[in-house]
Write a protein that binds this DNA or RNA. Structure first.
Ligand SMILES: [Mn+2]
Ligand SMILES: [Mn+2]
Ligand SMILES: [Zn+2]
Ligand SMILES: [Zn+2]
Lengths: 138, 138
DNA sequence: CTCAAGTCAATAACTATTCTTAATACCGTT
DNA sequence: AACGGTATTAAGAATAGTTATTGACTTGAG
């Protein structure tokens, strides 16, 4: 996710209206590294915006995903986690505390992935999911 | 997934009964590289076992996953794909035809992942999901 | 054979997400 | 500042894949 100004600029240029609900979700996500679910976002924002509805949270997240400002992650069985991280990175999932930890290329020099083709298939993106025990749970 | 004999031997030793339904699911999966969904497995087996129920397919798949004979993959939004592949491998997902292609280490010499720890977190498994256009769709 | 343990099929329940609808409010225009 | 067209909202219903429940049936050890 880009800066607040850049993001709302993109919304404006794409023809989306700047509603307080959307701005609150954007503010919530910028700089957030916790990979929150829609339910968590809703619960947290509900305190400040008591009239906020679940649908609006989902609508906003889907809109942000469509314009590439967030990505949804299928790391668990029953729900999605939302990630405002724009630069390509990987994830470590702790099987004990279920926390999701960003693994950026600079911290993962041992990770090397092919680019271009693999077995004749054209690669457009690649994501690594590590699973194990996080440093806190060890 | 191991051989038919090995797999049913494991079921027996774990105390599970060998029912025709379970055996049919096992036979269906052995050697199957198509990553079928529960719905597809049900539809295909229903022809031979008209009384088969959806729950039995799910129950059997969950049992096989619990004893490590299959793994479920969360590659799409709305359903799981089941993979009888036991050895560690990766997947390529085509965004055009949605096919899931196995990427085995021997075919992916450019894929190199760390083992042991990463940023202090202990790695127990790692999976790569490539997305793009498969060789058929290109 | 007996009977407890396990399994079956049918279907109800569950839950994260999406859809529907009437009311609201953003924002370009006046 | 007020207007008005229309995108957006809130609330709740609907959806769909998966899981849980139920009561009848099957298995197999003793
Ligand atoms: Mn992330
Ligand atoms: Mn596979
Ligand atoms: Zn942990
Ligand atoms: Zn394809």
């Amino acid at each position: 996710m880009h800066s607040f100004e850049t993001t709302i600029g993109r919304l404006r240029s794409e023809g989306f209206k700047l509603t307080p609900q959307r701005l609150s979700v954007i503010r919530y996500l910028i700089g957030n590294t916790s990979h929150p679910t829609a339910a968590v976002i809703y619960k947290d924002l509900k305190r400040k915006y008591p009239s906020l509805s679940f649908s609006t949270v989902y609508n906003t997240l889907n809109m942000l995903e469509k314009i590439g400002e967030v990505q949804s992650l299928h790391l668990f069985d029953d729900f999605l986690n939302y990630d405002p991280g724009t630069e390509a990175h990987h994830h470590f999932v702790c099987r004990s505390c279920n926390s999701i930890i960003d693994i950026f290329p600079r911290d993962a020099e041992n990770v090397s992935l092919p680019e271009g083709d693999i077995s004749g298939n054209r690669i457009e993106s690649a994501q690594v999911v590590f699973k194990g025990m996080c440093r806190n749970c060890l």
